[in-house]
Computed example of a mutant assay.
Amino acid sequence: MKRLVAVTLALALAGAAQASAESMVISPNGSRPSAKGPDQYFTGSVVVDPLYPANDQTSSSGGLVTFEPGARSAWHTHPAGQILIVTTGIGWVQEEGGAKREIRPGDVIWTPPGVKHWHGATAGNGMSHIAVTNMAGGKNVEWMEKVTDDQYLR
């Protein structure tokens, strides 16, 4: 009887694991091509590695963004906010009217909807972050003017 219960339990667990595995989607590394950050939205060398798109189950998209030293985004806002998770290097973030702030690996930055800001690497160090950007009305970003060298170095 114990053996029958053990076999039945093992089969049930295997079936549950298989059912769960069939409902998961794995997007293998290398299946999402890297892209150069467009010159109209970035200054310097930036690479964007898509992680996941928004879909019917989630209203956010995710990407790994890598900035070489001196590289940065243009000023922009997010209609539904954004989370940045710094993974490597040292960077800067700045919201309009505020001081430039240093960010390091492990830092998590929440930018509320509509806050004009920029982010990027410091002048001497590269920086990477995971960006989780929420969607509103089918849009996740509103790009604006580029950050000038004077603004960046201030």
Rank of each mutant, 00 (worst) to 15 (best):
T148W: 01
E142Q: 10
D107A: 15
S73V: 00
N55F: 07
T133R: 08
G124K: 10
S61F: 13
D49V: 15
I83E: 04
G114H: 07
V47Q: 07
A12Q: 01
V5C: 08
V5A: 14
I109Q: 04
Y152G: 03
A12L: 13
G114W: 09
K146I: 15
T122N: 12
L9Y: 01
Q151S: 05
G81W: 02
T122Y: 08
D56T: 13
A136Q: 14
E22P: 00
A10I: 05
H117A: 11
V5E: 08
T77K: 04
A12M: 10
A74P: 05
N140Y: 09
P50A: 05
S73T: 02
G137Q: 06
P112A: 10
W92H: 11
G106F: 02
P53K: 12
H117K: 11
Q40R: 12
P112I: 04
G30P: 02
L4S: 05
G62K: 02
T133C: 11
T66Q: 09
P33G: 11
K146C: 12
G124C: 08
D56S: 12
G15M: 00
S20V: 00
L64W: 08
A54D: 01
A121R: 08
S20C: 01
A136V: 06
E68L: 03
D107F: 00
V147C: 04
S34N: 14
I90P: 08
A16I: 12
E22Q: 09
T77L: 01
T148D: 05
R3M: 13
T8C: 03
S73L: 00
I83M: 07
P79M: 06
N134C: 02
Q82P: 02
V86C: 07
H76Q: 05
Q57Y: 15
S23V: 10
E95R: 13
